[in-house]
Nucleic acid binder design. Structure first.
Length: 469
DNA sequence: TCTGGGGTCCTAGGACCC
DNA sequence: TCTGGGGTCCTAGGACCC
């Protein structure tokens, strides 16, 4: 047999159709049947998902939202994503899938592979898995209140994945064992997972357009063109050789946060402050996940879109947002930012699933350290220069006294907000949208989740609290 | 109103070690 | 006395995915 591949079509790929837009249309009746675009709605935003109605006008994922606005008629809804709602819907779908097989690999918020053989009791004939998938699609739509799924089933992940794409939306494709190459070969190479713009262009220059064309190329040529891993991988995929297993849980290898600014930034103080905010998000997520990291990476996108990264690795792992921020600042200090910075990012890698106890205690042995300013014995005082002015300690959210006038509280597609004033238990914030003048001053309780950079809050529904004295 | 944000994997060179 | 050779770690960048 050609490569590792099972005899029965027992791997399913489930893909929710235009999920973000579908959830919005489910939750708001007036959006049904109308073009809906979900994504960054600010100046530099891009489309995350376009509903099928919006796709008719040419709106596509990853397209600048401004371009989608030009293409779509008035009456099109442009919405900022509500990740919390999508996550809930995703959980509902995954629960349905878990009933079908004990082996489910969730690849993203709207996609999963199932190993139907792992259940042990399914009829794995083409007829059997077809009936199973039809039932799954009905159950998904019912459980989610109308969000539909497309399903592909085949002898491998590759075939299942390509199959789920063939009959979108709300479709089912079962590729019978033995039919794999016949299904794959007429398709354009861009349908193969791992073939993006660069690979497609290189293949096009050699006159190769379909997967069938690709299957006629020597393995050694592909390795010359694309390197060992990618070249050999393409060679196998073109032959439908794919023995990747469906795997359950995978451990995170990195945690990162980044932000594109409405306007390029040059001010050092402001950049340092943004780094602090990003590092605080990363550190908080490390802690929430019980992780610590040895390597901190910053990402800098210049005004001209050139992007660089700088990283440094320490001997000891940390999950302290203040320390992550300090590393990140040190890395940023080496970079010329005078021409304008479009994006900043902070990432943490070399993750360990334990937290170094007493990292700063006197019992810790001194270790060679990359950073002169962050030796292992050095514990930054709360408001010492070099530590973020508002970094929350272990208990979040921050105490009322951590909010200071002038401090940025969040930046997202709704615009920027900064603290206007604060008092006992409350903080007042003013927001400025990308295309709107500064909005009214709003007042929040300090533990209001709307103040934290997780999901874009619906400000209009945030209950008012008493203004500070 | 060109080009988001969160990830994964691979490559390649240099340091360092045996 | 002229380049060994393999393995691992670190860093930077790039392709790709959703």
């Amino acid at each position: 047999m050609s490569g590792g591949r099972r005899r029965e079509a027992s791997i399913a790929h489930v893909d929710l159709d235009a999920m973000f837009a579908a959830v919005e249309q489910r939750d708001k009746v007036s959006l049904r049947g109308r073009p809906v675009v979900v994504g960054g709605v600010a100046g530099r935003g891009v489309v995350a998902t376009a509903s099928y109605e919006a796709r008719q006008f040419g709106a596509r994922s990853a397209m600048p939202t401004a371009e989608a606005r030009r293409r779509c008629p008035s009456g099109t809804a442009f919405l900022a994503p509500r990740f919390a709602a999508y996550r809930k819907t995703s959980e509902v779908v995954m629960a349905v899938l878990a009933e079908l097989s004990p082996l489910v690999e969730q690849v993203s918020i709207d996609e999963a592979y199932l190993d139907l053989a792992a259940a042990g009791h399914h009829d794995l004939t083409v007829g059997g898995v077809t009936a199973l998938a039809e039932q799954a699609r009905r159950e998904i739509a019912a459980a989610t209140g109308g969000v539909t799924a497309s399903i592909g089933i085949g002898t491998s992940k590759l075939v299942a994945k390509i199959g789920s794409d063939l009959n979108k939306p709300n479709g089912l494709t079962v590729v019978a064992p033995g039919d794999e190459q016949a299904v794959l070969h007429p398709l354009p190479v861009t349908r193969l997972p791992g073939v993006g713009p660069a690979t497609a262009e290189r293949l096009r220059r050699s006159g190769l357009h379909t997967i069938g064309d690709l299957a006629r190329v020597d393995r050694s040529d592909l390795i010359d063109w694309f390197g060992q891993a990618h070249g050999a991988g393409l060679y196998r995929l073109a032959r439908a050789e794919d023995d990747r297993a469906v795997v359950g849980e995978r451990e995170a290898k990195s945690v990162s946060a980044e932000e594109t600014f409405e306007f390029d930034l040059t001010d050092r103080g402001r950049l340092n402050h943004e780094i602090d905010l990003l590092a605080t998000r990363v550190g908080s997520r490390l802690r929430a996940g019980g992780l610590s990291a040895r390597t901190v990476t910053i990402k800098v996108r210049h005004h001209d879109f050139t992007t660089i990264t700088r990283s440094a690795t320490r001997a000891q792992p940390t999950d302290d947002p203040r320390l992550v921020a300090q590393f990140a600042r040190t890395l940023l200090a080496e970079i010329d930012t005078s021409a304008g910075i479009r994006l900043l990012g902070v990432g943490a890698t070399t993750l360990a699933d334990f937290v170094q106890d007493d990292l700063f205690g006197s019992t810790v042995t001194a270790t060679p350290d990359t950073f002169a300013t962050s030796g292992a014995h050095h514990r930054p005082a709360d408001h010492e220069e070099g530590s973020p002015p508002t970094a929350p300690g272990r208990p979040t959210p921050p105490a009322a006294t951590d909010w200071r006038p002038g401090q940025d509280v969040r930046h997202d597609n709704h615009g920027s907000g900064w603290v206007w004033g604060s008092g006992r238990g409350v903080v007042t914030v003013r927001f400025e949208g990308p295309s709107t003048p500064p909005g009214p001053v709003r007042t929040f309780a300090v533990d209001d989740p709307a103040l934290h950079p997780s999901d874009p809050p619906d400000w209009t529904n945030t209950p008012p609290v008493a203004a500070p004295a």
